[in-house]
Nucleic acid binder design. Structure first.
Lengths: 259, 259
DNA sequence: TGACGTCACTTGTCCTTACGAGTTACGACT
DNA sequence: AGTCGTAACTCGTAAGGACAAGTGACGTCA
């Protein structure tokens, strides 16, 4: 029966009241919220209004609703999995990835041929409609249950110029780095990080809950002449994992070419 | 009048039909979608059903709805602003940030004192409830209109141990790096990247559209003994900006302490 | 005891109706 | 010609009703 009439629309007042109750600790994380019927009585509003308020809190990622059970306060736990983006080399010069061993393949990799899009073309510094080898993987970290979509793209011209690369875009990235090094390239990498809401296929493939963005990391490997040779993409739900980078200071403030 | 009856709920079928029409190009980016009344007629459903479908597409970030005007296909343009996360030093050893000059302060910085939370405590490797100096800024990049929330946190014990640091958490990060270097520290940085849906205050402060996640970057500066000295946070809408990192290979695969 | 059906609870879907509020264009009045 | 009001469109909010579907507990029956 707590009366409400502060700002804006009714359902926003209800949403604000519930939000405060959650943040103030009246409703603990993982606990069950009052049912829609109870909220109707508590705030003296109709069911559509209550559902509208709940839907707003859902979009904020504050609560999870389960059909037949009720609404639960989402436990705002930090991501469990830490993905370190680093490239290391052993004494023999082989490449080692910090997270190379945690992932398992959930299904068979898919290889295919495509063309550069506006997006990948920009990052590879190629025109549109350039031919590419591609390989898609669906990865799982069994210990945390985190799922991720992985993709590698190799331009035709690079694959042709580098002997061992062949038509095998599904090799692990470390192996591809090695082959490129053997071909005389000294590698450096550029990584671009973006976040957005998942597309429907990503929502299902990654088993994402409501209001969960995807982190989209794109790494390009540059060769000796600073030209991009190879593109690697990783997409995963931002609720499960976070990215970590180690940075050291550049000696001189180099100016890179503008993208 | 296009009949629909494939999968699941009616409103999902309607949403899927509109989604396809958008992705197939029938509705171009920035163009006006049919009004709710027209969609009701087109699919033979009631207004709540149409609105439910539209609300789903809105949550996916596919469309923008403007009161009194209609629904518009969101132009899926890539982020305009590229934020390079790098630390460079001039010949004299001063620190230079790649994006140090693009930001302007939208309002007066706020200084305050707080304590470590579970989150910042973990990153600074301090217990909870340790005292901190803090400074919050609201930044704007005038050329792109991008807004960002910036925060610096300095533990009391660090501020006391380093003479010039004083109670001035609002100095630019580069200046703080410099003071720490003068105090004998050799700095390295760790950056953590996360994404999540904005809180209500972030939505308004950053002027975020619907279904726009925030990218949340946290940088800690480590001193000579590898202990975190200083924390810097940047939050911004993922629709406007992207992060870029430059990576070079480590010589030996160093094992860092676990967080 | 075990299996299963029922019931009472939950949220999900869908409809109808009504009015409020922002936007735009047109036309009448000054 | 310029101003302003109104009308007709848009989406936003709120209420009511009805039934479907998932969940869990309880009780009955074999």
């Amino acid at each position: 029966m707590s009366e409400i009439q502060r700002p804006g629309a009714l359902y926003q007042q209800v949403a604000a009241a519930i939000r405060e109750a959650i943040l103030s600790g009246e409703f603990a994380p993982d606990s069950l919220l009052p049912s829609e019927a109870q909220l109707m009585a508590r705030y003296g509003v109709s069911r559509p209004t209550v559902r509208n308020a709940i839907s707003a809190l859902r979009a904020e990622g504050l609560i999870d609703v389960r059909h037949g059970k009720g609404s639960f306060v989402r436990s705002s736990g930090q991501p469990h999995l830490t993905i370190e983006r680093r490239v290391s080399r052993t004494a023999e010069g082989k490449f080692v990835m910090p997270n190379g061993d945690i992932w398992q393949e959930a299904e068979e990799p898919t290889t295919y041929r495509t063309h550069t899009t506006k997006d990948t073309g920009r990052l590879l510094r190629l025109d549109e409609e350039e031919a590419l080898f591609g390989c898609d993987r669906l990865l799982i970290d069994p210990s945390s249950g985190t799922r991720a979509m992985h993709r590698t793209l190799i331009p035709f011209e690079v694959a042709e110029a580098v002997p061992l690369l062949g038509e095998e875009p599904c090799k692990p990235a470390a192996a591809i780095y090695w082959v490129l090094t053997q071909a005389g390239h000294q590698l450096a990498w550029t990584e671009t990080v973006r976040a957005r809401m998942p597309l429907p296929d990503e929502r299902t493939a990654l088993k994402l809950p409501d209001a969960t963005p995807v982190l989209h990391v794109t790494r390009t490997a540059h060769g000796t002449d600073d030209r991009p040779l190879f593109l690697e993409e990783l997409r995963f739900g931002a609720d499960r994992a976070e990215l970590v980078y180690r940075i050291t200071a550049d000696k001189q403030p180099t100016r890179r070419t503008r993208t």
